[in-house]
Amino acid sequence: MSDSSNFSFPHRTPVFTAVIVLLAFGAFAFLARKIYVPHATTVNAIEGVRTPEERKALLVEHHAKEAVTATSYGWVDQKAGVVRLPVDRAIELTVRDHAKK
């Protein structure tokens, strides 16, 4: 039979293993960050691509034009006799026409 009291366990092995595991985890985290995190912190201007401020200014301008279009009279196609009415007036005319039916 073997005597279990003669068995000696090296006390540094658990500490050494823990250090190796932590180093491996650190290396993995470093490589993952290096691969997945974008390298550039700023984006270079690309022709045709607008900044958020430029897009917001264009949107405000577009909304202003749409508001003028929705509240004024104008020709859509003068040859065909198609006109643009303000939305409120178009609603009034539509309600009046449906009330007659």
Rank of each mutant, 00 (worst) to 15 (best):
V43R: 10
K79E: 15
K79R: 14
A80C: 01
A27M: 11
G48A: 05
S2E: 11
A67G: 06
L59Y: 15
N6G: 05
L23G: 10
T51L: 08
K100C: 00
K79G: 03
S5E: 06
R50G: 03
A99T: 09
P38F: 01
N6A: 07
D3I: 02
F28L: 13
F25W: 13
V15N: 03
L23Y: 06
T94V: 08
L58C: 03
F9N: 09
L58F: 14
F9Q: 12
G26L: 14
R33S: 14
S2R: 02
G74P: 01
R89C: 00
V83W: 07
A90Y: 11
I91E: 08
R89W: 06
E54Q: 15
D97P: 00
V19L: 14
E54S: 06
L23Q: 07
L59V: 03
D3Y: 06
R89Y: 10
G74K: 07
A40G: 02
A29Y: 04
A64V: 08
F30D: 02
F7D: 12
N6C: 01
V68F: 05
L93E: 03
T69V: 09
R12K: 01
V19G: 00
A90E: 10
S4V: 09
M1K: 02
A18G: 12
S2T: 06
F16C: 00
E47N: 15
E54L: 08
S72I: 02
V76A: 08
A57I: 05
T69Y: 13
T17C: 00
S2H: 06
T51E: 04
N6R: 04
A29M: 09
Y73A: 04
L85H: 05
K100M: 06
L58D: 15
P14W: 01
R96Q: 11
R50E: 11
G26N: 08
I35D: 03
T69D: 07
R12Q: 11
D97S: 12
V82N: 04
P10M: 00
R12V: 03
N6S: 07
T17E: 01
H11Q: 12
K100T: 11
A45L: 09
D88K: 12
A57Q: 15
A24D: 10
V21Y: 02
L22Y: 04
A90Q: 13
R89I: 14
T13E: 05
V37Y: 07
V82Y: 08
V37Q: 09
Y36F: 15
F16D: 13
K100S: 14
G81M: 03
L58T: 01
A64C: 03
V19M: 04
G74I: 04
E66L: 15
A29I: 04
V21I: 15
E66H: 11
H63V: 07
R89E: 12
L23R: 02
V95A: 12
L59K: 10
E92L: 09
L58Y: 12
H62E: 07
H62P: 00
S5F: 10
S4L: 14
A57Y: 04
V95Q: 10
L22N: 04
S4I: 09
